[in-house]
Design a protein around this nucleic acid. Sequence first.
DNA 1: GCCCTCATGTAATAAGTTACATGATTGA
DNA 2: TCAATCATGTAACTTATTACATGAGGGC
Lengths: 176, 176
Amino acid sequence: MDIGPTGYVVLGMLRLGERTGYEIKQLVDRSTRFFWAASYGQIYPELKKLEDAGLISGAADPQGGRQRRAYALTAAGEQALEEWLRDTSELGMELRDPALLKLFFADAIGSEDAAAIARAARERHEATVAALEEVRRTKPESDNRMPATVLEFGLDFHRWCTERFARMEQELKEKD
Amino acid sequence: MDIGPTGYVVLGMLRLGERTGYEIKQLVDRSTRFFWAASYGQIYPELKKLEDAGLISGAADPQGGRQRRAYALTAAGEQALEEWLRDTSELGMELRDPALLKLFFADAIGSEDAAAIARAARERHEATVAALEEVRRTKPESDNRMPATVLEFGLDFHRWCTERFARMEQELKEKD
DNA sequence: GCCCTCATGTAATAAGTTACATGATTGA
DNA sequence: TCAATCATGTAACTTATTACATGAGGGC
């Protein structure tokens, strides 16, 4: 059996402590989402698969009449996670940006319209910066420092994009 | 019927002149690939779909006994392309980076191993910069300036990533 | 003769999103 | 009481990749 990156997201989140599928989704949404998203449609089946493989173990943990199943990393799961972390052979960043795609073809429209694409892209990155700053503001303390390190990378990344798109916007307006 | 971004890639490539599916794939691989990839498995079915919708028109154009079908943009196709280009409502950049994902969980491994992830990521971006510089070097002349504008963005982008990952690598090594 | 490029296409598979169904608890 | 949140799960769908099959032309 082989685990995809999304499986390791689950493993990684469980390394920080026992969690339910629901909690994993919450965590993903305010942390890895910006460079690796995951939906319920992936998380729940993945939990089942990982348990079958013995990498995690789940236990019913109802709160009142509300059903709840919390999972914990097994020793095998911890080992699988660490092995994956140490493998640097597949680290290709994948970018999908409809804004760059439209700009690529934007000779078909006026440079004012092209500038509007750059402006909209800039605004999106500004919004992401604001969202990440909010995440940083409300982040719980922890002895794990890497999440914060990656968060700073994300902030710098979207700030850079903001500025670069702003520059492109200006250049497109000038060449009118 | 609605067209996805990949359909517009086809439309956009055809706006530059008559092309076969094979040629579109070549073009994509040395231009939009860095922010929007497309495989034969998408391109050929998409060509059929777009022709059925009347946005492009194909004509058999065999070279000797070698079969060949060249497509051209119709007036309706040109209009559809321009409408899509002017719509700035869906410009969300999607990033998927296994390197950032691993770094996020890298508290589970030593900071030397974490630094190795950052180093590998940096090397990948360096390779991409080299690839893009090669593309720039061998680019044909054209009156369309936007492809070059986007290429410069891509170069700056991967250069920035190179430096930022290098910085992270250093910081991880220092905090040993 | 053989390999590479040109050229078209499909089938199987993988990956992921969206929408829905279900139901309990909590707080206003 | 009503909305929001907690909680689990699946089915349908979309999107895209990989691998394969097929075959002609050009250059060594």
